[in-house]
């Protein structure tokens, strides 16, 4: 009876790993495709980290633009990260998670102010909102915020022509 239960435990673990690996990989690829497409479409509007406007162009409006996303790592990557914690070194599986989250947050910030000509003083903030088992990363939230500036003398590059 005990053997059956431990066997069942292993089967569930393998299923979760397989599901995490397969579906997780597919979803990540899909997300990256969408990120790259949207990034390419919004390339004409700069997002900068400085605070002062570099020229004296008349400003029509300035508002705060915010974008955020909460993401979580899949079971397979969390499992791998467990090993990584033992040996040390770069955790590549987590870097892709955070990279996706940050780029998505910036894109959402852009989308929240579609008329802006410039995003001034873009700040990124990452916070871990729930811890996984053994202190591994569970869920991470990334917020991107900036001041969306619209110039009075410019036609929006995405609506022009």
């Amino acid at each position: 009876m005990e053997l059956i239960f431990s066997l069942l435990g292993w089967i569930i673990l393998l299923c979760l790993l397989g599901l995490g690996f397969g579906v997780g990989k597919y979803l990540e690829a899909q997300h990256y495709t969408s990120i790259k497409q949207r990034e390419a479409a919004s390339l004409t509007v700069p997002v900068v980290t400085f605070k002062q406007l570099t020229d004296d162009r008349p400003v029509a409006s300035a508002t705060l633009a915010v974008g955020s996303v909460a993401v979580s790592v899949d079971y397979y990557k969390r499992f791998l990260a467990g090993f990584r914690m033992f040996f040390g070194g770069e955790m590549r599986s987590y870097s892709s998670l955070l990279d996706r989250a940050r780029r998505e947050a910036i894109l959402r910030m852009r989308e929240s102010a579609p008329d802006a000509h410039l995003f001034l003083n873009c700040r990124l903030e990452t916070s871990s909102i729930s811890k996984g088992e053994r202190n591994t990363i569970g869920t991470v939230e990334v917020v991107a915020y900036a001041t969306a500036v619209t110039f009075a003398d410019e036609i929006h590059p995405q609506t022009a022509g």
Binding site: L16, L19, G20, V23, G24, L27, E28, H31, S68, V69, A70, V71, S72, V73, D74, Y75, K77, R78, L97, E104, I129, G132, G138, T139, E141
Partner: peptide, 11 residues
């Protein structure tokens, strides 16, 4: 959490 990705509820 099993498959990873965005958690819309949390967002």
């Amino acid at each position: 959490n099993i498959v990873g990705g965005e958690l819309k509820g949390y967002t």
